[in-house]
Amino acid sequence: MRRRIAVIGSGPAGLTFARVLHRHGCPATVFERDPAPDARAQGGTLDLHEGLGQRALDKAGLLEEFQALSRPEGQAMRILDTDGAVLRDWRPHPGERANPEIDRGQLRDLLLGPLDVQWGRGVTHVVPGSRDGVQVHFADGRRETFDLVVGADGAWSRTRPAVSSVTPHYTGVTAVETSLDDVDTRHPDLARLIGDGSMAAYGVNRALVAQRNSGGHVKVYAQFRAPLDWHTHLDLADAGAVRASLLALFDGWAAPVLDLLGHGTAFVHRPLFVLPVAHTWTHVPGVTLLGDAAHLMPPLGAGANLAMLEGAELAESIATCPGDRDAAVRAFEEQMWARAGRWAKITTSGLERLVSPDPATALAFFDELQPA
């Protein structure tokens, strides 16, 4: 079978790329290893920035639909100390839409629309340079050939080795995720503590972050510096044991803050990995990367936004330069590397300041982000 463009991965980057191509009348096929759109939870909420993610949605013709789904109130941010005292309480002005929040699942549904997505089609590897184009090898044993393969398959990309031998490295910071459901009814005190958007408390080399999603769902992240194998004495499937270990790690923090962990019912280990700040590669005709596959960085609000804008820009470049697609891709890569490198420096520095020996550096980091 021969298709001109393959997109590996149905995250924000790949779907935005395919959706903008579709708007320009250019077909592409998205391959996703998940067996169905709702096969697993899509993760926490995203704040889409006016000049990045929202700009990408505008290029896809979806900005108005996004605005109807998004939660401007989710831009609120509250910072506490470990005693539970409120240090900062930022709230959006009426009508402010600089960084409204949207659940990842809602964003995926918005982007999917009319796209050709083949579910349950995991990729094992990609081989460029064949006579007929680029070969994509699938987990089911099949192979298909394309003119262009766009790897948007995340941190542990199966496409990346076709252009780069670099692999992600551990930052030294681990996150353990849990969640609270129906928080306004079941945990009204925590609902008030968190507010309308996000809440964070910072201590020595650790942090607790709570983030509202829609429908009264809250994601909670315990972040701390630790060896990658810190959990070897724990059964991560034993929620009670993980909860007890985390409560011991955050011992001495205010009881209302610790309740964020105490009421968690399941815990997911998410060590933070990154690619080198200046990750680039020698251009390979017929293959390129987007998003985390290209520039995995600390999760401080930039990654999905960059990924979506990259997808939109690459799609526009291809649609407007049909006669020299490879030159368009090469020019796009240069632009992506420069912008992603700047953001990788910002987010790497941000993680160092947010999970640090001096909690005051976290507060200063957020102060710098606020408009004058």
Rank of each mutant, 00 (worst) to 15 (best):
Q135D: 01
A222S: 12
R143I: 06
N305P: 12
S349C: 07
D109I: 00
R186G: 04
I346V: 14
M336N: 02
A254G: 12
K59C: 07
V287F: 03
Y170N: 10
S349W: 07
W119F: 11
C321D: 12
H217A: 10
V166L: 07
L208E: 07
L260D: 10
P72R: 04
T167L: 11
D38F: 13
C26Q: 02
G262D: 05
N213W: 07
A254Y: 08
L309W: 06
A200L: 12
R71I: 00
A39W: 14
L363E: 14
P27F: 09
T174G: 03
R40E: 15
G262Y: 02
D259Y: 02
H233A: 06
D229H: 13
P12D: 07
G84Y: 01
L354I: 00
P128I: 10
G11E: 02
G151W: 07
A191H: 14
V209Y: 11
I102T: 03
P271W: 12
I194K: 04
V274Q: 09
H93P: 15
D182Q: 04
G11K: 11
M199L: 14
D181M: 06
F250R: 05
H279I: 06
L369N: 01
L190Q: 03
P35N: 04
L309E: 01
T145E: 11
T171A: 06
H22M: 04
H49R: 11
G301E: 10
L46F: 06
H137L: 10
A200Y: 08
F267W: 09
A319I: 14
A266D: 15
R225K: 10
L246E: 00
V134G: 09
V86E: 11
G51E: 01
A226L: 11
L354P: 15
G105P: 15
L52F: 02
F250A: 03
A254N: 00
P114R: 02
Q42G: 12
H263E: 10
D292P: 08
V163C: 08
G303H: 10
G43W: 09
A200N: 12
